[in-house]
């Protein structure tokens, strides 16, 4: 026990607030409820929510990379496409199809390790464009694989062995599981001491190095996480679409979606991309039938947000009310000396 004198006025670091604890609690409850989704949602909603989970992965991973790591990439479709491609490859090599869907992102994560040695030498705009070039390169290389038959593509036939209802449930659970895993992983990484170092690099790379941050190794960590995460999204997307055509999966539209969700939700806030993904999902569900107007609407929304709501929906709310539901930062609290004694 410290004496009262030690406690009076001594600041303490607080990371959780009652609000954020309540929010995490509700989130866990929601996830538990969603875990039984296929039992009560019906086939349409089960399919749609599977897509939502994939969107949450995409947005969260792009935000981890760009919003926290400062590594703005327009080439994340490289990993999205490779995730799907590897799942096809593994499945055709005789690996159980659901195991293939899980293994593919892990292998892409490993593959991104040597790749990062080249990619992370580029800075700022060079990195963004360099990643796009890399995605095009990956696209072309995958096209060379005879199995894929060029742009004709190939289907994940092995998944058809499962009855449609069973397949729908498995896809849903796989997506829910991977989303939970990746978001939780991202949360703990960004909350860790390394997470603070990642943000320091984003804000000023040279200053980060001068206070002891190993810049390259730290950047690599977030690069690999985002690569594996985007590959997981690609592999999951394959499980729902079944057919694989390189140009669909290596399309820059996936990164555009990630960008849209993150910017609208709130770049560099942990909750933002999740909000953005839900919003994007709702808009898509309601307006996707309107074809080209839907795309124009998306573009206009992104424009309006970047001009007038640069912090995004959640960023604006968080700034305005000073709230964090999933806190990754640090707040110093000053214990007020009182007659009743120090409060914990």
């Amino acid at each position: 026990m410290k004496g009262a004198k030690d406690c009076e006025g001594a600041p303490a670091v607080r990371r959780w607030s009652p609000l954020s604890i309540a929010a995490i609690g509700s989130l866990v409850a929601l996830l538990a409820l969603l875990a039984f989704g296929p039992a009560y949602l019906g086939s349409y909603l089960t399919d749609r929510l599977t897509t939502l989970f994939i969107y949450v992965i995409m947005a969260s991973m792009w935000n981890a990379l760009a919003g926290y790591g400062g590594l703005v990439s327009v080439g994340q479709q490289a990993f999205f496409g490779l995730g799907a491609y590897l799942a096809i490859r593994l499945s055709y090599a005789g690996v159980n199809v659901y195991l293939a869907l899980v293994l593919a992102p892990l292998i892409v994560g490993l593959f991104s390790l040597p790749l990062s040695s080249f990619a992370l030498r580029l800075r700022g705009g060079e990195f963004a464009i360099g990643m796009w070039v890399l995605a095009e390169l990956a696209h072309l290389l995958v096209n060379l694989d005879g199995l894929v038959q060029g742009e004709t593509g190939i289907s994940l036939i092995a998944i058809s062995a499962f009855a449609p209802d069973a397949r729908r449930s498995y896809n849903y659970w796989l997506a829910l599981g991977m989303m939970t895993l990746l978001v939780v992983l991202g949360f703990f990484l960004l909350r860790s001491r390394t997470g603070a170092a990642i943000q320091a690099i984003r804000d000023n790379e040279d200053a980060a190095a001068s206070v002891g941050v190993r810049v390259f190794a730290t950047k690599r960590l977030i690069f690999v996480l985002a690569a594996a995460g985007c590959a997981a999204a690609g592999s999951l997307m394959l499980s729902t679409l079944v057919s694989f055509q390189p140009k669909t999966y290596f399309s820059v539209q996936w990164t555009a979606y990630m960008l849209f969700m993150t910017l609208v939700g709130g770049l560099g806030t942990f909750e933002g991309p999740i909000v953005g993904a839900v919003l994007f999902f709702l808009v898509e569900t309601m307006f996707a039938d309107t074809g080209v107007w839907y795309l124009i609407g998306l573009g206009a929304t992104a424009l309006i947000f970047s001009l007038f709501v640069p912090r995004g929906i959640w960023g604006t709310i968080s700034d305005r009310f000073g709230i964090q539901l999933m806190p990754v930062g640090y707040r110093l609290r000053f214990r007020v000396p009182s007659n009743a004694g120090a409060t914990p």
């Binding site: 670091v13 603070a196 943000q199 320091a200 984003r202 804000d203 000023n204 040279d206 200053a207 980060a208 001068s210 560099g268 930062g329 640090y330 707040r331 110093l332």
Partner: peptide, 11 residues
């Protein structure tokens, strides 16, 4: 060269 988007404490 502050880490501009972080708090003083986080810096």
């Amino acid at each position: 060269r502050p880490f501009a988007n972080m708090t003083v404490f986080e810096n």
